[in-house]
Amino acid sequence: MYQLTFDTQAFIKQHWQQTPVVLTQAFADFVDPIAADELAGLACEEEISSRIVVTKDNQWDVIQGPFEDYDAYGETKWQLLVQAVNHWYPDSQPLVDAFRFLPDWRFDDLMVSFATPEGGVGPHIDNYDVFIIQGEGERRWKVGDKGNHQRRGGDATSPLVDDFEPIIDVVLKKGDVLYIPPGYPHCGETLSLALSYSIGFRAPSQQELLTQLADSLIDNNSGHKRFTSKSEATDPGVVSQTQQQGIMQLLAELATQPEKYQTMLGKLLSQNRFELDICEGEEPVTLEELQEMVQDNAIIARIGGLKVLRLENDQQCRLFINGEVYPLEDVTEAQLILLANTMTLDSENATDLLANASIGQLLVELINQGLYYLAE
């Protein structure tokens, strides 16, 4: 178990999406959930996103994985980063669970890095919130203030920025956590062989929302309302300010109509950016077989990284799982909450849920799809 030592609600009020902060000894007696050689093994796999960043003077070379050997990189000035470790390494899930005081829809992934002395990725700005947890070793972190930071080399698409004046300059030790909201430049430098854990949270951009909304309207053959007005400008070559606002108001109206956006939003927010470790069994399970196994004290668990979401005030009874909609019938709100909030259903909870025909069918379907699995 990983237990945070700080007041999470006070953190949300004072720092969340507002200001960076160092949370000294946020984990007492921190134990690394994964070893460096195990992380290196994950980076050998084709389906797992990984990269090595090599520091060269004031530049950083990025090599995409998978990797078969690390000898060529030497003993200093490089860093291995592996994305979505929580999808592939179940022992890392308890560390993620410690941050479930924030909603699951925001959670992106657990990235783990192994860094040699002087290794790093350079000064950069992220468009998401991140908690950096220090494991073995020590790393020095600098965080700058928000501002008009110049992109390194003049590349507007690069996350790298020119050097900045730090407002935080700290050496993180085992169990320390550094929180950085979006938009703050930061840079880490490794002082000794180190393992670090980055837990990221992100929200959809306007581009993503508009793209998904447009696709949803097209798929459902809706959104046909057009702009109308009772007066026109006298100048034939002008679009009046009133009409500009009226046309854009058509989009704003969609935000007041849950039937237009709820399905789109649930599907979008339950998707993962990284591949999941699907756990399909050799033979499909039936409801009767599942009930028997649960009666024998089997538990039903989600695969790592799977998002199971419900929408408050949803107009339909349903769950959103991995970008798909799962309608349910004759299900109570308490049962929906249990399914959405619980990572592992013990035999008692599973037995109660399986007594509902709709939920039983859902759990059988999810297990056969490899999104849930049975364990002892």
Rank of each mutant, 00 (worst) to 15 (best):
D277Q: 14
L213S: 06
C187S: 10
L363N: 02
V82D: 03
P90R: 08
M248T: 15
H87I: 09
N220W: 01
T228C: 15
Q361S: 13
V96L: 11
I321A: 06
R318H: 09
Y184K: 04
V112M: 00
V308Q: 01
F107I: 07
V53G: 00
E68G: 14
N127C: 06
D97C: 03
L311N: 05
A355R: 14
P182L: 11
D346H: 10
K260W: 10
I367V: 14
Q17T: 15
E189K: 10
F227Y: 15
Q249W: 04
G370Q: 01
E333A: 11
D346G: 04
P204W: 05
P123D: 09
A28E: 11
Y70G: 00
I218M: 11
D314P: 06
Q83A: 13
D235C: 11
R302M: 06
V170Q: 15
P182F: 09
F99E: 00
I12S: 10
E280M: 07
G122P: 04
E232C: 09
L366C: 01
H124V: 05
V96F: 11
A252H: 12
S205H: 08
I359Y: 12
G119I: 14
M293S: 12
Q150S: 14
L269D: 05
P159W: 03
T157W: 09
K267F: 03
E118I: 06
V325F: 03
F114K: 02
D296M: 11
E324K: 14
I303T: 08
D169W: 09
I34N: 01
R152I: 00
E376P: 07
E47I: 15
Q3G: 03
P33N: 09
Q59R: 13
F201C: 04
I359K: 08
Q25D: 06
L374N: 05
T19M: 10
N221Q: 14
